[in-house]
Design a protein around this nucleic acid. Structure first.
Lengths: 252, 252
DNA sequence: CATCGTTCGATTGTTGGACAATTGGGCAAG
DNA sequence: CTTGCCCAATTGTCCAACAATCGAACGATG
């Protein structure tokens, strides 16, 4: 006869598993406050240091938030946390620009279509502000990559599809910074870019889904062409930049 | 005048940040072994307990692995870790079947197309085995959801696009289990499903990208139709199931 | 000579207790 | 109404130990 590998795990891991289960099953709801660390230690029957190690794992993952001196409370891991992590992991796996593009060409146009169908007036105002800011930045020869990333994030959010938003964000955080390497080679890239943004914005404003999707697709194809024209290797791994760390995204 | 919020962070967070940076910048490479905990504590000039708390965060994220009694070593966070986490987060956000489907209809056919173009003989053999196993399970009235999930994961892997593979996996882990609720309502679902799988397999075997993409799209549309026929609400949140936890996926 | 038991050093897992730092709130003085 | 101060609660960090585990080396046993 044979025995199955019995998975004996450290106490600190049991702690994180247990609390995670409570959250997943809804016994702990976002906003709830957990007992203090000494209380938790007493309830689990283990030392406080061990509890703290377990808590760290959930904290990192976004299930728990805490402020020093204040009790910890439950929250939901937002895309905010997830997308940058996925991006970093992909960067470490040395994925190529081609791989990223092949996914972006699927997701971005679909996001634009959804945005055109669902956008509210306040959404459109926010997008308008972004486009204006980008136009100013490009005219002034200022960096605009961050604004570009925001534009696509805004469009995705407007679509109202959170799955699409998350998937796209993870790709976009790597994809658009990769364009940064391209700017020195193609001085007119910024202008072409912002023209495309305005076309998309106007299509969304008219709730014209087909046009929005079409122009976003053109935009992506234009990106790719620029990458090739600049003589960059589409199969070379993209680099990780720090554009992600400071993303806004007031999700939740 | 105003001051910007100065971000003072706990020592344990500095630890994880610092080590993470070393990994991201390649100064620590996968497989490298870290100093022992007492050594690290000495180098950072802080207590060992604090070091341990910092390490937990990286461990959870997959940057570090450890076995009790053995020293820590660096590793890369694989999709293996990421996709299930993303799925759980999406489930907690109560995303709807409609949102999932709208993304799956983009990614799955593209994965099938890529698979048809790139598939090696051993890939095809593995996929063949999966389809045969599914046919047997369906004939015997056995559960086949796990095999279904595997089928799509295999196809995605064959495409050679790791970005596509990761995005699709996160969606699929929620999407396909959602079909489980459908089986009791549509007894013939399993058979239709496996017929579609074989069509896709044969197209991939012939390296016929158009056919593979087409049949995968049909498959997805069929799924959706089944969901509607069964009278299920496409806008109701999907539930989290445990199918993810035990995924194989020999990535890396 | 192959297998098993033992020991050893290194390393992680866990504990107990302690103190500093931070927070929020209440209260009195200016 | 603001300021300064004290207080209780809670988290952040430290210290010094002990237990448990692992890999490897060394013999003992059959």
């Amino acid at each position: 006869m044979t025995f199955t590998k019995l998975d004996i795990m450290p106490a600190y891991k049991m702690v994180s598993r247990t609390i995670e289960q409570h959250i997943l099953e809804g016994r702990l709801r976002p906003g709830d406050r957990l007992p203090s660390e000494p209380d938790l230690a007493a309830q689990f029957g283990i030392n406080r240091a061990t509890v703290r190690e377990g808590i760290r794992q959930l904290e990192q993952e976004g299930y728990l938030q805490r402020a020093a001196g204040r009790r910890l409370f439950v929250s939901l891991p937002g895309y905010n946390d997830l997308a940058p992590r996925a991006s970093r992991a992909l960067a470490l796996q040395k994925v190529s620009f081609r791989e990223l593009w092949n996914v972006a060409i699927l997701l971005e146009p679909s996001a634009a279509r959804g945005a055109a169908m669902m956008a509210s007036d306040s959404d459109i105002t926010a997008l308008e502000e972004n486009v204006v800011a980008t136009e100013i930045a490009v005219d002034a020869n200022q960096p605009y990559i961050k604004l570009d990333i925001d534009f696509h994030a805004l469009v995705a959010r407007m679509s109202g599809n959170r799955v699409l938003e998350l998937s796209r964000e993870a790709v976009g955080l790597l994809f658009f910074p990769a364009m940064e390497a391209l700017v020195p080679h193609l001085p007119q890239a910024g202008r072409r870019n912002v023209i495309g943004h305005r076309k998309i914005l106007e299509a969304i404003r008219r709730h014209d889904a087909d046009e929005a999707e079409l122009w976003m697709r053109k935009q992506m194809i234009d990106f790719r062409r620029g990458y090739e024209l600049a003589g960059l290797d589409m199969d070379a791994p993209v680099a990780w930049t720090e554009h992600a760390r400071s993303g806004e995204a007031p999700a939740q």
